[in-house]
Each structure stands twice: as structure tokens, then as C-alpha cells.
Simulated scan of single mutants.
Amino acid sequence: MAASRRSEAVQGATLIAPPLLYSLLILAAPLLTLLFYSFFLLKTGYSDLEQGFTLENYRQLAVDPIFRAIMVRSLWVSGLVTLATVLLAFPVAYYLSFVVRPDRKALWLFLITIPFWTSYLIRVFLWKVIMEQNGVINSTLTGLGIIDEPVTMLRTVGAIVMTLAHAYAPFAILPIFVALEKIDRSLLEAGRDLGESRLMTFWRVTLPLAMPGVIAAVLIVFIPTVGDYVTPELIGGGRIPMVANFIQVQMLGLNNRPLGSAMSVSAMLAVAVIAGIFLLVNLRYLKVRQ
């Protein structure tokens, strides 16, 4: 028996070894490199690194009001994007789960994933074309006589939120849909049999049971949008920089890899802390609490 278990363990380790090694090389190695660089300093007037371990980069960031302001802005914009994305995604997922016929759901899922067929960069450029001064929205509103002059939509937080919410919508729809599909429909029928209205049944039964999917959608959208670089650069026109744009300036513009690495590590820690707090608050929905 013991030999059989050891054999199964060896087979399991052999099976997961290639993807584990790949993950370490692709994910862990860059993160460790950033962490390593963040404890160095540039020599004054040179691009070479000084030898030795130092926390000067982190101390500099802790007292830098510009970095704090950009970090807060990044978290705020990402929070708005997450809220908008989940609020838009939930009705779509609900309709797909409860209204669409079972034999049509595969088609709907196929349609939802169509945006993934095109590059993320192309989708951002399309939104730029739509919202620019002579774009589709302004041309339509002007042609209908609703407005006299084009409205400035680019280089605003609203434009960034709208673009990111559209880009990450499928990432929110799919986990919410999966959670809704797992709900036992007999529970909803029992709620209505006990005299609850459809609205109260949704509030007391459907929504709590769908919360694991909502939590997954929040994390899937919030974490990457904090570090998004393309949308603030193209839609914001560089006037509303987020933390990724600030890191790019340090890394490539000023060639200050240690400070840029410290910014990256600090941003990851901030996101990890917020995500951890969010998960702790929602433990009861994830059924982790004993």
C-alpha cells in the first residue's frame, strides 16, 4: 500500500513538474528580478548600479507625494472599472443563465468571447476612434442636433473607465455565469412557494449563492487594471497617468531600474493587501469559515 502511494505521488510530481517549472521561469523569475533590483541604487550621474543592500528606494517612495497620488488614482480608477464591469456583467450573466434556452447558451458564450479574437491594443484604438472629437459618438450627437459642438471625451477618467470596463467585461461575465449555473433552481422555487417576491428571492437566495462568482470577477478585473498601461496612455493621452505609466518612465525614460522596481513591488503589495482584505470580508460567501 505504501509503495503504491509513493508510486502515485511520483507520477503526480512527474505530471505537474513541467508546468510548475514553466510557471517558475515565466512568473517567479521576473518577480524575483524586480525584487532584487529594488534594493540597489544608481550611481550619481551614471547608469551603473551601486553595490550593496539598501532600502533607500522604498524610503523615497514612502515620502514621495507624487507616487502616493498616482498610486491612489490607480486604485481609485481600478475600483471604478471593477464596479462598472461587475454591474454590467451580472445582468448579462443572469440573462444567459436563467432566460436563454440551454441549447442556445453555447452560442451566447461564443458571442461573448468574440472580443478575444482581436488584440487588446486594437480594441483600445477603436474606443479612441469612437470617442475622439470627430468620432462616432460626437458625429452622431451633432448630426441629431443634440449638441452644437463636439464633447471632449478623451483624456478623462470616464473614458478610461469605459474602455477598461468593455475590455474586461468577458472576464467578469464568465465566472458570474458559472456561479449562477451551479444554483439549484429548486431553492428559488422554494423561496417563491414560501411567499417571497421575485426581487426578494433574488436578494436572499440568488445573489448570495452567486457571490463566489462575483468575488472572482472582482479580483480578475481589479488586479490587472491597476497596472494597465495602454489605456491611460492612449485614451488618457498621458494626462492621467497611472502607476504603470509612472513605472515605465522610471524604467525606460530615466533608466532608473531600481526605483522602477521598487514602484512595481510597492504596487503589487498594495494590490495584494486590498485583495486580501476583500477576501477576508467575503469569507462567508466562499464557505471558507469553519
Score class of each variant (00 low, 15 high):
I173M: 06
M200A: 09
G227W: 06
S266E: 13
M162W: 00
M162E: 00
F171G: 03
V243H: 08
R239K: 15
P150I: 10
L174C: 03
I223R: 09
F222M: 08
I240P: 00
N255C: 01
T225C: 08
T206H: 01
G158W: 01
P175R: 14
A272L: 11
A216T: 15
V151D: 01
H166V: 05
N255L: 11
T142Q: 12
G158T: 05
Q250H: 15
I130T: 14
V178M: 03
F125E: 02
I215T: 11
S186L: 05
R185E: 15
T163P: 01
K128V: 02
G260C: 06
R239Q: 13
S266H: 13
G135K: 12
G237C: 03
S186R: 15
L126Q: 02
L199V: 13
T156F: 04
G213E: 08
A172H: 14
P212C: 11
D193G: 01
Y229G: 10
G260N: 09
A190N: 09
V265W: 10
T206E: 01
V151I: 15
G253H: 13
A190D: 03
Y168G: 03
G213H: 04
L194R: 00
E196Q: 12
M268P: 00
K182R: 15
I146G: 04
A169P: 00
D193W: 07
E233V: 06
I130A: 14
A179K: 04
D148S: 15
L207T: 04
T140N: 06
I160R: 01
G145E: 14
A179S: 14
I215G: 03
N134E: 14
A169L: 10
V221K: 06
S186M: 08
I137N: 07
R198P: 00
E181Q: 11
G213R: 06
G191E: 12
N256E: 14
E132C: 02
D193S: 06
L252M: 13
A272S: 13
I147L: 09
E196G: 07
G158N: 10
V249A: 02
N138G: 07
T156W: 07
N134R: 11
G213W: 04
I223L: 05
S261W: 07
R239P: 00
M211I: 08
I247T: 09
E132W: 03
L259D: 10
I176P: 02
T201I: 05
T225W: 03
F177H: 12
G237T: 09
L259V: 04
G143P: 00
R257Y: 15
G145D: 14
A165L: 04
F202Q: 10
P150Q: 14
L234H: 02
I137T: 10
H166G: 07
G238V: 03
G158C: 03
I223E: 10
M211L: 09
L254M: 07
I247C: 06
R257M: 13
L154N: 12
L126F: 03
E233M: 08
V205A: 02
V226Y: 06
A210L: 07
T225R: 06
T231F: 05
N134M: 07
S266W: 11
A169Q: 06
G237V: 07
A262S: 11
T201A: 11
M200P: 00
I223W: 08
I130Y: 14
F202P: 04
A172K: 14
P150M: 11
S197T: 15
D193F: 02
V249E: 09
K128Y: 10
L164K: 00
L199S: 11
V161A: 03
T156P: 01
W127V: 04
